[in-house]
Design a protein around this nucleic acid. Structure first.
Length: 659
DNA sequence: TTAGGGTTAG
């Protein structure tokens, strides 16, 4: 039968080309064809369908042959339109909606199509509901697709309900249903529950192993992923290319090139076919781990690269300081998408080239690419850094236009940060209050920004609100809270929260928490307590800590203590420009010009350069960049008298020695 | 009578 069916294609093509003069062999098979019904031939052609145009032609045949009521035939038609990547789900739905009593196969095809689609999986769930209300019973083919839709929609309660349906229908023992339930839990980040389910699967398939290894990889649990990989051997299950992709992804996230290289070796030893996805995963692993030569080698050896191959290498260059190479490679890309643009744009953000971020954003739109949430969040971050509130507001308006119902939480958080850092604290708080599904990041941003803007009391109030709502804080929350205490001079409250952070919330203090506390104590004149705290730190004090301490010495006129501290530190960190500048300033204030000259000479001789601090100001929608003593001719002369007046005003307001 | 699940870039 299959031989004859294969030959049918030959007959079909001959009919097109040689309608009048068929060769004798083809003529023989044409006679054989007569033994098949028109319906059988149609089914065969539907199975071999190659495009929507082809499908529509076959649909016309169905109508002409009077088979419009044949559910089996229509099922095949719907299946192609709904499921095949060359299909059209709307066409499938159109046909489906004209069928008086659609069967289970048709429902399953549409649910599968919707769960794979880019328009969102809610239609898959709606179709499942319609299936139930039509009295059509789901089977083991139905549940995996609805569960997939649930995982994307984050409908944990719905997946629990479906689990119940599965038990009632007696299909939960099917390995595909179990894998789908496990994958839903992985999607909800309930990795340990997924593992329990995995352990309960009697006859695990390769997909079960790959799903769980992939789950650990996505959760950043690298060791668990590798432990499970080792156990595959005990169960006599051989890995495939998908197993290796998940393992490499785990290595990339952990920046563990040793493990990654072992996986590479294993791939070569097992002789698994390295397809494009696996090559891309290898490229990404080497790129993220900073092995640019190996990443380039894989890139060169990949014959048919896709946009992911190119973007992975652009990202690798950008993240390892080769921004010029990243830009050049980006220019050579034969195909780009929003992710490629975002990769380059965020590279400039990380590099502190905020003006370049904004011009690339313009270029991206001029090239016809639609910015997505990640683009907007990156550009908002640049706006926040340079105080470009005008562009920030334009992005806000754009985001509201394109997200008619609600702003995605990550974007809302970026907006809160942008407004707060640009000084519009009230607008930032309005957005924060309006966001329905705030996450911990939202609270941390709002609190941190209030603290930095000097609104310490408001930040502390926000923390109390958080506690009252039962939201568990993290280390970042406490950095904001302690900064708020420090900037408001609330020494006792700072001590209280620093202690509670460990005793109540079990959060071990990191170096930034110590820095806040030392700053708080130093500003309060409690130098001795601050120095003692440095002594109790489980990690080495960094330049920020010493800077806080030295700053306190300057404010409180402990000049001699500062100089002793600094000279000792300079022996430990001779190339620290920050320390050299601090010492130089201390000598200037004490009028010790010769010592100041010496330290400046050391800086010049040893190549310790003072980093130029760039400031930005936005006036009437234009962002101006300037440095200390910056008298470049492009600024209007009228700016200088204003700056001088501001400096005089500050000198009157701020205690001497702090300016 | 039709068929299914797991993987890569910002």
């Amino acid at each position: 039968m299959s031989v004859i069916l294969r030959l049918l294609t030959v007959v079909g093509s001959h009919r097109k080309c040689h309608a009048t003069t068929l060769p004798p062999l083809t003529f023989f098979f044409t006679r054989q064809l007569q033994s098949f019904s028109s319906q059988e031939i149609l089914h065969y052609r539907l199975q071999r369908c190659s495009s929507m145009a082809h499908l529509k032609l076959l649909h016309a045949h169905i109508v002409v042959l009077g088979l419009s009521q044949e559910n089996f035939t229509l099922g095949k038609l719907i299946s192609f339109a709904a499921v095949d990547e060359r299909g059209d789900i709307d066409y499938a739905a159109l046909v489906f909606n004209r069928i008086p009593q659609p069967n289970r196969f048709m429902f399953n095809s549409l649910i599968r199509g919707y769960s794979n689609g880019s328009r969102g999986p809610s239609e898959a769930i709606a179709m499942y509901r319609e299936m139930l209300s039509s009295g059509v019973s789901p089977n083991e083919f139905t549940l995996p697709f609805v569960l997939k839709a649930c995982a994307v929609e984050s409908s944990h309660w719905l997946s629990t309900l479906l689990h119940g349906h599965g038990i009632k229908l007696g299909i939960c023992s099917h390995v595909c249903v179990q894998n789908a339930l496990m994958n839903a839990l992985i999607g909800f980040r309930m990795t340990s529950d997924a593992r329990k389910l995995f352990d309960e699967i009697d006859e695990k398939s390769l997909v079960s192993w790959n799903s769980m290894i992939g789950g650990y990889s996505r959760a950043g649990q690298t060791m668990e992923a590798f432990n499970l990989f080792r156990r595959m051997k005990e169960f006599r299950v051989g890995p495939d290319e998908i197993t290796f992709v998940s393992l490499l992804s785990a290595c990339s996230q952990a920046r563990d090139s040793d493990l990654g290289m072992l996986v590479h070796l294993f791939i070569e030893m097992t002789g698994v076919q390295a397809d494009l996805i696996l090559r891309n995963a290898l490229l990404d692993m080497y790129g993220k781990c900073g092995h640019l030569d190996s990443a380039e080698k894989i890139f060169r050896q990949t014959p048919e690269k896709n946009v992911i191959s190119w973007t992975s290498l652009v990202t690798a260059y950008a993240r390892h300081g080769c921004i010029k190479s990243a830009r050049e490679l980006f220019a050579q890309m034969p195909i780009r998408n929003a992710v490629s643009w975002n990769s380059l744009i965020s590279a400039y953000l990380q590099n502190g080239q905020f003006g370049e971020v904004l011009s690339l954003f313009e270029e991206m739109q001029d090239s016809g690419f639609i910015p997505d949430e990640a683009t907007l969040a990156t550009v908002l971050s640049a706006c926040a850094q340079i105080g470009d509130i005008a562009t920030g507001k334009r992005i806000h308006a754009y985001a509201c236009e394109t997200n008619l119902i609600a702003l995605p939480i990550a974007l809302a958080n970026s907006l809160i940060a942008m407004y707060a850092k640009c000084g519009e604290v009230a607008t930032a708080l309005d957005i924060f209050r309006e966001v329905q599904c705030k996450n911990l990041v939202s609270w941390n941003i709002a609190m941190g920004c209030l603290a930095l803007q000097g609104c310490g009391a408001e930040a502390i109030e926000l923390f109390r609100e958080m506690e009252a709502l039962g939201i568990q804080p993290d280390g970042i929350t406490f950095t904001g809270l302690l900064t708020a205490c420090s900037h408001s001079g609330l020494i006792n409250l700072g001590r209280y929260y620093f202690e509670r952070m460990m005793s109540v919330h079990s959060i071990p203090p990191e170096i930034e928490h110590y820095a806040c506390m030392i700053d708080l104590l130093g500003r309060g004149g409690l130098l001795e307590e601050a120095i003692m705290l440095v002594g109790t730190m489980p990690m080495r004090a960094d330049i920020v800590i010493w800077g806080s301490l030295l700053g306190a010495c300057r404010i409180h006129k402990f000049a001699e203590m500062g100089r002793v501290l600094l000279k000792q530190l300079l022996e430990l960190l001779p190339h620290s420009s920050g320390l050299c500048v601090l010492l130089s300033n201390l000598y200037s204030e004490a009028g010790r010009w010769e010592d100041r000259r010496k330290i400046r000479k050391i800086m010049n001789d040893t190549g310790v350069a003072k980093c130029d601090a760039i400031s930005y100001i936005e006036i009437d929608g234009l962002v101006y960049e300037f440095m200390v003593d910056d008298r470049r001719s492009r600024w209007p002369n009228s700016i200088y008298p204003v700056l001088d007046r501001l400096t005089d005003h500050l000198k009157l307001e701020v205690p001497s020695g702090t300016l």
